[in-house]
Structures are given as C-alpha cells and as structure tokens.
Design a protein around this nucleic acid. Sequence first.
DNA 1: ATTAAAATTTTTAAGCTTAAAGTATTTTTT
DNA 2: AAAAAATACTTTAAGCTTAAAAATTTTAAT
Lengths: 150, 150
Amino acid sequence: MTAERLSKERLRLWLRMLRVTRQVESTLRERLRTEHDTTLPRFDVMAALYADRDGLKMNELSRRLRVSNGNVTGIIDRLVEDGCVERIAIEGDRRATRVCLTDAGRASFSKMASEHERWINALFEGVAEEDAHHIGELLHRLPTPLSDVT
Amino acid sequence: MTAERLSKERLRLWLRMLRVTRQVESTLRERLRTEHDTTLPRFDVMAALYADRDGLKMNELSRRLRVSNGNVTGIIDRLVEDGCVERIAIEGDRRATRVCLTDAGRASFSKMASEHERWINALFEGVAEEDAHHIGELLHRLPTPLSDVT
DNA sequence: ATTAAAATTTTTAAGCTTAAAGTATTTTTT
DNA sequence: AAAAAATACTTTAAGCTTAAAAATTTTAAT
C-alpha cells in the first residue's frame, strides 16, 4: 500500500507548510506593526500596486491577491485614509475604479519592502540556494484547483 | 554577490509558499463550509483536541495552535454551542479549564478528518513521495524565531 | 427601445484574529 | 499574614475575511 504512505507523507508536508507559513506571517505582522505601524494585508495590497505603476482595478486587485472583493474594499478604504492610496475614476466605465499608490504610499512601501526582504532572508536562513530553488519550482506547479475527489 | 541571489531566491520561495498555502486553505475552507457546515479554525481546534483524549487546557490549546488566548475563547464558545466540545472544571485550580471533545464532536471530527486527508492528497498530487519527504524535513527545522536583523 | 443579463463595486452579517486591558485565582515574597 | 507577582482566562476594540445580497452601470437579446 504505497498510496497510503504517499497520502500520509503529503499530509505531513501540508501540516508543516502550514506551521512555517503561520510562524513567518506572525513574525511579519509583528514587525510591520511595531516598526511601520501597518498590517500584513495592507502590505500585500501595496506590494501589488507597487508592481503596476498605473494601478489596478479593484477587480484585478482582488483576483491577484486571491481574496474577496469586499475584503479589498475595506483595506483600500483604510489605505486611502492613511494617504497611501487614491481611487481614480475610469473614463468610459462608471462602475469600475482604478486604485493607485500615492507618492507617499510609494515611498513608504519602498522602505518597507527592502526590510521585508531582509526579514525573510533571516527567517529562511537554514535553506540553501539549491533547496530554495528546487522547492520553489515544485510549488510553482501547485496546486491545481482541486480535481474531483469524493 | 551570491548573498544577493540567495536572498532573492528565498524571497521567491516564501511568496510561492504563501500562494500555495492560501490556495489550499481557501479550498479547505470552502469544502468544510459546504460539506460539513464548519470552518477551518474550528477544524483545527477539533484536530488538536482529537489527538488528546483527555482534552487540553485553554492555555495549551492556544500555544499548540499558535494563536492568541482570546481567539481560542471565541472558537471554543461556538464549538460548545454546537455541542462538539465541553468545558470541564479542573480540580485544584479554579482559574483553568479543561476543554474536551464530546462524543458527538469526536464522531464528527473523525468523519471530517478522513475526507481532509483525501483532499490534501489530491491537492498535492504533483508531489512525489521523496519530494514530500525532503521538503517536509527541510521545513521541520524552520524557521527559528527571527534572529536579530536590523 | 425595452428588457434581460452580466459586470463592477459596496454593503452587510457573521465569524476570525490580535493586542491590550480586565477579572479571578494561585503562588511567591516579605 | 499581607502584599506582590505570576498564571489562566475573558472581554474589548479594531481590523481582517468571507459569502451573500444589494446598488449601479454596461452589454446583449429581443
């Protein structure tokens, strides 16, 4: 019964991924809170907007981050209050809005991002370059949206 | 500058882990909701209690799950309402409570757990046993709580 | 042109999550 | 024994998250 062992091994892998991910996220949350007075969700949104200088539609943003529409609405609301983001009307479609980092938001994110990379580098200190690359490639093809399994 | 490349590779690894973890969690949430009318946090709590037949103190539970005390309080409240869990007084210490699966909770979890393993097995279909094992071992030693990094 | 359908976003209700403050109890110090 | 400190848990306030419903606007069908 190799299928049985394989299944158990995959379950163990999942549980460990979950543990590591939570630990790292928890560390990032704390650092972002104490050193930059912000949150991980806000950081994630800003990262997505930083990559596209012209900003993104709310739609695209929520698809890219894999979170719900309503969720993004709330986070953007707060980022606008903070002066990091602005909503810009889209000509020709009054349903949609484009969302864009302000200059202040861009500067603020730029500072956080380089620290963020240092934090990650330290947290993954035990992972050699080949392993990082290998695992990264493996995860890249995973997971396919759940195939039928009853 | 190998250190630079290593840092980037680790960052990429982290982003991919995050993506996969979110995708899997999202699938699990949906399955648990539609097929068992429950949530992932409740499932996690029940899993911890299932492993210890005598139950756990609130304290131990929150440490094991790496979430805050107050968080566990709320989830247990709801599990008690659902009849899946009961709070039991501890003799000799009126501050603490032991929390335990009821028979109904135990039966309910048992059913969910076997499906859960099938779902994970399907989601990680692309991962061979050796890879699962190898990555699992690597993650097992990760991460050490953030070492000093300014 | 009207109507129906689809698309885009926001709102709502319920639950999850944390940090910080609060309550009660036990243990340690003086 | 009284005071102080530590422990165990709950409550609170703020924010995150989702699914579902609602509001608005655009596109497609008749």
